[in-house]
Amino acid sequence: MKIYLNAMFALCFVSISLTIKAQDAVSVPDLIKQGQELNQQKNYAGAIEKYKSALKLEPENARVNYEMAFALYSSGKGAEGVPYLEKAIKTGTNAQLSAGAYSLLGSIYSGANQFQKSITAYTNGIKADSANQRLYYNLGIAQYRAKQYSNAEQSFISALKLDSSYAASQRMYALVTFHQNKRAEALLGFCRFLMLEPNTAQSAEAFGNLQNILSGGSLKPEPGYKPSPATKAIADNQNKVLAKALSSFMSRRYASPGDLLTTQLKAVFTALGTMPNNKYYFADYFYKLSQTEHLPTFARLISQKAYPENAKWLKENAEKVTALENWMKDNKPVF
């Protein structure tokens, strides 16, 4: 009887031990989920511990390595995440995960002002996922910060081809053309950005740049940037076109700034939209707008941050604003 009881006790002990071990065992997917939840709660240290546990079980798991790098980046330790991203890229078989890893790698290098490494990372990410609009945008930002304005222009154009309504890409496209002194393209770009985002702090800056172009102001070359002869020739030609279109406005008087802006924009949109050659992005689009009754509303919409009377006019003419919005919904820029 004693032997039987001892055997039963031993079996119960083994059964209890196995149950406890089964309860303690957590799968890698569970650890990833717990880490993501902690990361969302900004408990980065807790998330990192979860990923450490997951990596002990599966050190080559690409998702875990990516999540570990993301948690480190979120906690301000981006540089420590680089080896994990390199492993995620090396072992990963999912194109979107690889693109995400390259994107995060690019952000880490950009934050450390290592722009060429950042550019390389984003470029590799695009090779993995060429339909990723955000990668083109991030690449353009890195090129912009490195004063590679011509390359940045092409990156933002690629981003806009994927999403023509993303205001941030539109703003940066306008800025990089402006920095190259390609003022016709910059003017069209700022107009499109202000159409998408007319009433923010960035709108005020964009409208200031637009006014600079319309008034014929000059942009001083930035230190460290030297345009190529081809870029300079393009810029000079654009400036001549604008100067001709705006030549008669200095001596005229208008009832309001909104009236002046409407007339200026109509002249510029007509000049750029009817050019037989050298068509610019958005030139056809804004020429089409200039031939409608919506142009005065558009002029007041994009200038409301600068002129309070235009903000008031927009409130008092809600039906005209709605008509412009409907036109915008029915008409999208074509690249």
Results as ranks from 00 to 15, higher is better:
Ala159Phe: 08
Ile20His: 03
Gly111Arg: 05
Ala233Trp: 01
Met275Cys: 07
Leu38Ala: 15
Thr270Val: 10
His294Ala: 14
Asn310His: 14
Thr91Phe: 03
Leu85Arg: 00
Pro276Glu: 13
Glu153Leu: 07
Gly76Trp: 02
Ala71Val: 08
Phe282Tyr: 12
Ala95Tyr: 09
Arg145Ser: 05
Ala235Val: 02
Gln36Pro: 02
Pro333His: 09
Gln238Pro: 03
Thr322Val: 13
Lys305Met: 07
Ala311Asp: 15
Leu139Ser: 08
Lys2Trp: 02
Ala235Gly: 03
Glu58Tyr: 09
Ala299Glu: 03
Ala88Pro: 03
Gly208Val: 06
Ala101Leu: 06
Asn317Arg: 04
Leu246Arg: 04
Lys315Val: 11
Tyr109Glu: 00
Met1Thr: 11
Ala142Phe: 02
Ile213Tyr: 04
Asn39Ala: 07
Met8Pro: 00
Leu57Tyr: 10
Ala121Met: 13
Leu242Thr: 03
Asn212Arg: 10
Leu246Phe: 09
Glu205Pro: 01
Arg134Gln: 06
Pro59Ile: 11
Gln291Lys: 08
Tyr280Trp: 02
Leu105Cys: 05
Ala271Ser: 14
Lys329Leu: 11
Ala311Asn: 15
Arg171Cys: 01
Ala99Ser: 10
Gly81Thr: 11
Asn39Arg: 05
Glu309Thr: 15
Lys127Phe: 08
Gln40Ala: 15
Ala62Ser: 10
Ala159Leu: 09
Tyr109Phe: 13
Ala204Tyr: 11
Gln116Asp: 11
Ala10Leu: 08
Gly273Asn: 04
Leu31Tyr: 08
Leu188His: 02
Leu18His: 12
Glu49Pro: 00
Asp236Met: 06
Leu188Ile: 05
Ala230Thr: 12
Asn151Leu: 12
Lys182Asn: 05
Ile302His: 02
Ala267Leu: 13
Thr200Trp: 10
Glu37Met: 08
Leu219Val: 11
Ser165Met: 10
Thr322Tyr: 01
Glu86Val: 00
Gly100Phe: 00
Tyr51Pro: 01
Thr274Met: 04
Leu219Gln: 14
Glu80Phe: 01
Ala159Lys: 03
Gln36Val: 04
Tyr254Met: 11
Gly258Thr: 10
Ala233His: 02
Asn326Lys: 15
Gly125Ala: 13
Lys182Cys: 01
Asn237Trp: 05
Asn326Asp: 09
Ala230Val: 12
Ala201Asp: 03
Phe298Ser: 04
Lys117Gly: 02
Phe193Ser: 02
Lys52Trp: 00
Thr91Asp: 09
Leu210Ala: 04
Gln114Pro: 00
Gln211Arg: 01
Ala184Pro: 03
Asn310Phe: 04
Asn132Gly: 12
Gly106Pro: 06
Thr270Tyr: 04
Asn239Cys: 09
Gln96Cys: 04
Ser130Phe: 09
Ile213Phe: 07
Ile20Ser: 14
Asn43Trp: 03
Asn124Pro: 09
Leu289Trp: 14
Glu222Gly: 06
Thr123Val: 13
Phe207Arg: 06
Ile32Gly: 10
Ser215Val: 02
Arg134Met: 08
Ala184His: 02
Glu309Ala: 15
Met275His: 10
Ala79Met: 14
Val241Asp: 13
Leu214Phe: 05
Leu194Gln: 05
Pro333Asn: 14
Gln114Ile: 07
Ala10Met: 08
Lys117Glu: 12
Phe335Gln: 15
Asn209Asp: 05
Tyr254Phe: 15
Val334His: 12
